[in-house]
Design a protein around this nucleic acid. Structure first.
Lengths: 197, 197, 197, 197
DNA sequence: TATGAATGAGCTTTCATTCAT
DNA sequence: CATGAATGAAAGCTCATTCAT
């Protein structure tokens, strides 16, 4: 990658990161190109130099977030820890990611409204990658007899849903700190899978 | 209520119901007053005869849905069945409501972006009412020693989140029917609370 | 005039009087038929029973006000008092009328914007009638050598303009009462015409 | 001021000047942004690039006109001519300004209907500045014994009112030219103040 | 007569997008 | 590369007016 390309890439990431946070605050529709540009001390025109259009910016933003999430989970899967621990760590990572990015939760809801067919495919691929990570952990747990034998897709969806909802009710000023909260939540959710003696 | 008033009320409900379903499909911002009016074979002007502005229509729609949900739950609470059964039935009712209304999940996310201060208060009141129903069931279960003694607010939020997410992944064309699905999900979620033997 | 006709006439005057005062407050364009109807505890539809359209209501309102002004002046002209006194009284009557009606000063400005050709003619006729009264008084004063021989049309216009402007700056809470104010103003304006000794 | 800024400022003045003249013709409410834009061979959108909204355009227009009027009067006050002459020149300047700009007389009437609180304050400040100029001239004339000792605020208001009304009756096609007319009017109005021998 | 309901033309405003410089 | 300026399509909303009942 040439110096120029690096510079461009860096600028793009800068824009994406700003876009993500504004969109997370205000929602996609309510976020204007002007909002994004002005927070970056740029002009709208410049943003269009880096991104074809608003949707493209959105797409690349979403893509980046998903890729990072997947990396997080992959890293955890490499660790040499018990399966229950792996699943818990994955949950905690998911929660942390959500809270720190307050990421475009909105986009998760109706991606087909925001993305073109091609983009949608890419997004779906990434989502499936992500889901598969969880599925594998669950399957492994069931296989080794540690988890109850439930429908793994349903469990995965329930767990992800329960976690995604957190951004709606968790506020930092509450009594529980971020770490305790993640711990507690993952413990509670693990109860779905853990065998009763 | 006079005949006139009844007719007006009916028309309002008609509009609300159409609005709800279009907003559920396309999202609030993407739904135009024109969209709503034309599906009702009305003109925009007529819709404005019944609702002050778009936001007012949204507010009243959301309010109605919440009120209906609360009624559902209240009805279940009156039943003479064991606490576990009550909680399960409430979950099933919640899921059914979500699926049949495909209701504005979007609005649950950032109500402060959509509603005025006064409206927000009303909405919060209703939401709290609703949450409280679940909290009471959980508290009762813990009190009678049937449920594990977990933090009831957190459990409630996890359960609601897990259910709300359903609209994102559940499609009718799947293998499981609506009833089986609700059953399965509520069973799985009950596992969080049910004591291990 | 039958009873029915009388009732209708009375209702029309009621509407006109309300319309005049709201239009005086808010201006013609900003005044909606709804404003007028609701202050009368009527519905828009009813107002349309009495007046063809908004413009017609405006026209008849304006006409009525002008006719009343003309009557006032005519009455004064019949009095058996010196010419200077007659002119002063006329001024005072004009001022009183303005202040009590706060009447659609706005309409005086660009009648051609508000009225149809036919209506405009009627209005012009009345205005000329009114102006002529003043002109006659001035002409008489000049003829009898009491007033300086100035261009009577110009003087008349200056005097009327000076008076019409009053509504812009005179407020009842000032130090001068309504009567003193009319007195003072007419005195000052008479100075234009009164001969220097 | 950079070249860019100058260009922008010029464009703004261009828009203002067009807006002023259309508003003077048709009134504020009847003037649409489309009217203004199309006379400038622009699109509405472009006008909104320069002015926040219609009201803002109105405000800046009114402000500019007032500022120019004040400058005119200030210039005259600097001249080394007798007080009577100064007052007459000021009147003539006022009349000329009115006729050439046909300025938004409408706005003078009910500014509180058109402007926001902040804007109203600014406008009031300018109006007071302007009035004060006249007041000072009158006061000086009274002080030096050349003018009769009348209430200077009332005289000022009468004089301004008489002049403002001119736009209603003066038409260029009359027998008197613009200059003669201004001369005559100022002479007549001066008679209010000039001492009788 | 009176009215509730409906209509539609017209207006203000927003904003993604383009493009000459 | 960056930007100021311009554009135009679309949206929300208002309101005079009509009309069946």
């Amino acid at each position: 990658m040439s110096l120029r390309e690096k510079k461009t890439a860096k600028k793009k990431e800068e824009i994406i990161s700003t876009a993500v946070s504004i969109i997370a605050e205000k929602g996609y529709q309510r976020t204007t190109m002007e909002d994004i540009a002005s927070r970056l001390l740029m002009t709208k025109g410049s943003v269009y130099y880096y991104f074809k259009d608003k949707q493209d910016l959105l797409f690349q933003s979403h893509q980046l977030l998903l890729e990072r999430s997947i990396e997080n989970i992959h890293d955890i899967q490499q660790l040499d820890i018990p399966i229950t621990e792996k699943l818990k760590q994955s949950m905690i990572a998911h929660i942390d990611h959500l809270i720190s990015e307050k990421s475009g939760f909105e986009l998760m809801l109706k991606p087909e409204q925001y993305f073109s067919d091609y983009q949608l495919q890419e997004i779906q691929k990434l989502r499936e990658d992500y889901s598969r990570c969880f599925d594998q952990l669950i399957a492994e747990g069931i296989g080794t007899g540690i988890f109850v034998s439930l429908d793994k897709k349903i469990v995965r969806n329930l767990v992800l849903g329960a976690m995604n909802w957190i951004t709606q009710w968790y506020s930092l000023d509450g009594k529980l700190g971020k770490e305790e909260m993640s711990e507690t939540i993952s413990d509670y959710l693990m109860r779905i899978l853990i065998k009763k003696k």
